[in-house]
Write a protein that binds this DNA or RNA. Structure first.
Length: 285
DNA sequence: CAAGTTACCTGACGGC
DNA sequence: TGCCGTCAGGTAACTT
């Protein structure tokens, strides 16, 4: 489910309701996740602690406490977090519940259990960029993320540009939907080797990545099947998909049928006329 | 060592 | 109706 815009929407939705609240207990379903901080450790390290900040890094949600202990939540493919009354019925795939002093609790719901929960000490949290996030690429909106930076990273790669964009070690937060959409907007064929893009291509592509991610955040994210924000509401950016999940449909720019291929095991959608192998023709959006 | 493949899980959907 | 194969927004451990 969640790429950068969806996690950002959840983060913004939770922040006003979570900052200042105190965790009093933690419950878990007992089912394994891709990673799950031990329940006893969460109860001991978070019990009585007050939430100080709620933020995002890549596709991870970061909840920092007043003593700088850091709770990290990743939503995998199907994960979702939201605030519920402690008296609301617990659903089948509610795997972790962080109970608050005000009668509410934060619930992690994740049917496929590809998500994860980590707990970092204040020291580990302080050094997270050289520790937990050491292998994570730059945020696409950060000042350091420049066309030159991306081009130098891509210079060593023969892989398709779409695979490069989706590699969280190169640039953070771009998943299958937004990689497809950004490459359509830039008029770049998704299978084109990342090393063949020129400075001008990277300038346009980065501008369009930022533009599309921003639009998606403003729309409340994309709802494919089960994404809802922290208030239980759907996003609307899927209304704006130009290529993703539109095989056979008309290209909004030229009318040609959108094609679907597989690149590095992932469904890839593109316009065969607007996204030629060799040249980049940015689509006016 | 870069890059492709498989594994981790459940649920939705289409074909028969 | 139901059974079976396929596919899904992510990541990391494998293999080649």
């Amino acid at each position: 489910m969640p790429e950068l815009p969806e996690v950002e929407v959840i983060c913004q939705g939770l922040r006003p309701h979570l900052v200042g609240r105190v965790v009093i207990d933690v419950q878990a379903s007992g089912k394994p996740l891709r990673h799950l901080a031990p329940l006893a450790a969460m109860q001991e390290m978070l019990g009585g602690k007050r939430v100080k900040t709620v933020s995002r890094r890549a596709k991870y949600l970061l909840i920092a406490f007043d003593d700088e202990t850091l709770l990290i939540i990743h939503l995998g493919m199907t994960g979702n977090v939201g605030l519920f009354s402690q008296t609301a019925p617990v659903k089948v795939h509610d795997h972790v519940r962080w109970q608050l002093e005000n009668g509410y609790e934060l619930r992690l719901h994740d049917s496929r259990r590809f998500g994860g929960v980590w707990l970092l000490s204040a020291e580990q949290a302080e050094a997270r960029e050289s520790g937990f996030f050491a292998a994570t690429g730059l945020e696409p909106f950060s000042l350091g993320c420049t066309p030159a930076h991306l081009m130098s990273l891509a210079a060593k790669r023969n892989q398709p540009v779409k695979t490069f964009l989706m590699d969280g070690k190169a640039v953070a937060g771009i998943g299958n939907i937004y990689a497809n959409e950004a490459l359509f907007a830039a008029g770049i064929h998704p299978a084109r080797p990342a090393s063949t893009l020129r400075k001008r291509d990277w300038q346009q592509l980065l501008f369009l990545i930022r533009s599309i991610l921003s639009q998606a955040i403003c729309c409340g994210g994309s709802t494919i099947s089960d994404f809802i924000n922290a208030s239980g509401e759907s996003g609307y950016f899927q209304m704006n998909f130009q290529v993703y999940n539109r095989k056979g449909g008309p290209c909004s720019r030229c009318g040609a049928a959108i094609e679907k291929i597989v690149i590095t095991g992932r469904a890839t959608y593109f316009c065969p006329r607007c996204q030629k192998e060799s040249k980049a023709h940015p689509v006016h959006i």
